[in-house]
Write a protein that binds this DNA or RNA. Structure first.
Lengths: 215, 215, 215, 215
DNA sequence: TATGAATGAGCCTTCATTCAT
DNA sequence: GATGAATGAAGGCTCATTCAT
């Protein structure tokens, strides 16, 4: 292997990910329209022209940011599901906690925020995101709920609506951290929020919440 | 009084509200940066120049949209609080349900969405919004929680964190309706969501949820 | 009539023509691609943005330059034809000489030059130009030839091919004047060229050239 | 001799001509400014970087296209002149017909078209072209005319102006073929055009046209 | 007060040119 | 010699803002 070629090759292969990472952080910070490609390129350490070697347009870059970032994570979540089928309580905690670990507390938390802000401007992308991310996430959480109800561990709640309720606090916190952390660093600390979150929802879901599972 | 002058007067007085309403709907639809003042003026039925008679700049219009829309509503909420001090369960339902009625299901639901998207671009406005809206809303919900805990009706939850948890689903649903209703009209129907929401949180909060208060 | 409104109105009505005139001169001078819209605007005495109030894009401006400039002239030519039907020699001179007066020696001479340079880049425009200008011009010249042949004044030449031959020197001269006048001002002087042109073609066409018609 | 080296050598020597040929065809098709060097390189089967091994800049490539293509042809024309001094009619036909064979109906026909379009953008090149091509071509045609006039075969026309007239149809047809052949394949067929051309000009030039020389 | 024509700074995008490999 | 990734200056176009009417 020629080391010199290899370095350039490695660089070239890494570029798209470096660029989408830079773009993600700026899109989240400023919004799609207010983000200048100059800045994206600068943050990725390349010139403006280089960006166009890898992405056809600002819109293409945006789509790559959304699709390439989040789809792989969904697959991990689905693997989790199969591993914990027989304990719905641990499964639900694993899914919701896993969402937080893999998305909510990482840069990818910006993706839901972005999609909410821009879904009307990019309808096909919104459709894609809905099908590939939202639906699949709902199926995971809803599946865990249904298992728990079938096994008599969870109360017989309205599953689709409750899924939406369960995701709400997590998604909102993840957005909060990229939006209001300057105003209120305290409310954004997950170490206080997450226990209260799991305490409330488990108490709300479990048939017999007193056995300590809600902690 | 000349009636034509009077009509003009009325018109003139109504203009700012007509303009902020048009601006709100467009900001929510497209985002701040992607909204053109041409469109705002057109939707309000005036010319672009007229807009500048009432607002100094696009930024000033944005600030008016945020501040003038939502602050009055906060006062209604605070009045509610004083009226229902002695029944924390009804009080909490009234506050959360009132939030939905007065903000969540109206055009004002766009305001939280906007502030999340633009807080980094308008830090002082974010600070204002945090102080005048978020903090006061939290005080209301947190006050109801504390009353219930003191009176032994609610479990002894971590109040600040639980407030955040409680608001999450409501805020998210309100955003969802302006973002993904095209993809998923069903999940945006509050008549299914709200009962499941109250069922879950009341079960999660109440010391004795079986007495029917959770419905 | 309000004179102030009127002046602005008059200005607004004149703008498109001022802009196409400026654009024509620059397109002819530099070519379509090398012409910057800044320059066009500056030459018309307005700002770059103003140009976009009247034309949607550079391409739209180019199309307007071509279509609005030359079509009206064709109609004059066709009127000429009907007035001189009974004297084919004078008719042919009037058409060819009229082409020179109305197009060849004016700024419109740039239009054929432009179309030749850009026809491959704007195929629909080329088609339009071919149908609305070239075909009609050929019909005029060809009609005069045919009349003369029928009346026994002109030799029985191949009409379509000869039309092309007759137009060649005129069109070339008009292009020459915008291309090589700096190199050779002399060859661009029509007062020398035109007599030689008419002398040659009339001698070439007439059955009895000696009667002086060739002058 | 190593045959592979030799092939490379041959390749290397052929490169400039391959590149100018590719460039000529693209310049003629799209114009100088609208031609991208990527395309030129691709059409010549090399990479963009390679192009810069042979030409310093786009402008240098353009100049090479103009100068290297056409100057050698002029010399053939001048050789022709000396060979046919004593028959001015055949000489003139040979020069004009030769122009058509060597330039007008080949890719080199694009050169006059290009120079007309770009002369204002490249004044020194225009000057060079004027001196090395136009003047020499004029001298050839003018010389034949003068010989014919001296020998009493041609009428006493204004030589410089008539040269311009004689070249017009040929040059125009050659341009037409690269510009409007898509619109009007018929008018571009030289087998119809050239006879009509020679018929007209010979009739126009000859003192006694009836002796058949005009065919 | 209301209008809308005009402005020009700013951003996305292209492409001639360079240079490390 | 050949490549093609990288650069950055330049131009088309947008839109917030101004101002004459």
């Amino acid at each position: 292997m020629d080391p010199s070629t290899s370095r350039r090759q490695r660089r070239k292969q890494a570029r798209p990910a470096e660029l989408t990472a830079a773009a993600l952080s700026l899109f989240v910070e400023k919004g799609y329209a207010a983000t200048r490609l100059d800045e994206v390129a600068a943050r990725a350490g390349v010139s403006k022209g280089t960006l166009y070697l890898y992405f056809d347009s600002k819109e293409a870059l945006f789509k790559a940011v959304i699709t390439e970032g989040i789809v792989p994570v969904m697959e991990k979540g689905e693997a989790l599901f199969d591993a914990l089928r027989d304990d719905p309580v641990r499964l639900l905690r694993a899914i919701l906690g896993g969402w937080w670990e893999l998305i909510g507390c990482t840069d990818l938390a910006g993706v839901p925020k972005l999609m909410m802000a821009e879904s009307r401007n990019f309808p096909e992308l919104a459709r894609f995101y809905y099908d590939e991310v939202i639906s699949r996430a709902r199926a995971l959480v809803g599946g865990a709920l249904r298992l728990g109800i079938e096994q008599g561990v969870f109360r017989a709640v309205d599953v689709p609506a409750t899924v939406q309720v369960l995701m709400g606090p997590l998604i909102l916190l993840s957005i909060w951290r990229t939006s209001f952390s300057a105003c209120d660093a305290d409310a954004c600390r997950p170490e206080k929020f997450l226990p209260a979150y799991f305490d409330l929802i488990m108490h709300g879901l479990l048939v017999r919440p007193d056995n300590g599972d809600s902690r």
